[in-house]
Design a protein around this nucleic acid. Sequence first.
DNA 1: CGACCGATCGTCT
DNA 2: GACGATCGGTCGA
Length: 205
Amino acid sequence: MSGTMKKLDESFYDRNDVLKIARELLGKILVTRFDGVLTSGRIVETEAYAGEGDRACHAFGGRRTARTEAVYGPPGTIYIYICYGLHYLFNVVTNKKDIPHVVLIRALEPVKGIPVMLERTGKETPDYSLTRGPGNVSRALGMNKSHSGRNLLSGEIYIADDGFKYKKDQILVTKRIGVESAREDAERLYRFIVKGSPYVSAKKS
DNA sequence: CGACCGATCGTCT
DNA sequence: GACGATCGGTCGA
């Protein structure tokens, strides 16, 4: 199932097509390695946020604050912010610097380091909630706000291709979750999920 | 299963 | 002062 692990390089993120990138991230492996402790999981759910014209995007209207600065970073930048005061949400910044196209990683299928993930989340035994939902993904992989603004090309957090690829008919496209306040942009079909994966979060469309 | 609710706090108005 | 790109639990049908 897994061949050679090849870290995605800048050319993967440096493209003017955040929907395509969000779709292609399905099946890739998100890895963290802090102090030699490795945890990883296969991405099974993503959402695209398409820049200044997307009401659901933190950069809507060109809004630029200390919090969202990373969203305007070069391709491969990591953007992590706190949601509801207690969850960290991990995003991948794509496209050229100053073009705020990002992909939220919403769910993983755990691959390596499951015992460590259990420690981090305080769970006794693995279940589907371990890496289901964006808040849980960050908790299980040990990511927090201090990692925002770093990049995926040369650090402790990266995304790799192990040769695995989902077939076209295994992928579903739906509306994004929890963005009702984005009015008409809440209708955009920007969420990509692996059909039937028990790790995929809230089943809305 | 769906609806609702409390936790919790940084960020922006 | 209000509001989240959430989560896990409870309650009732």
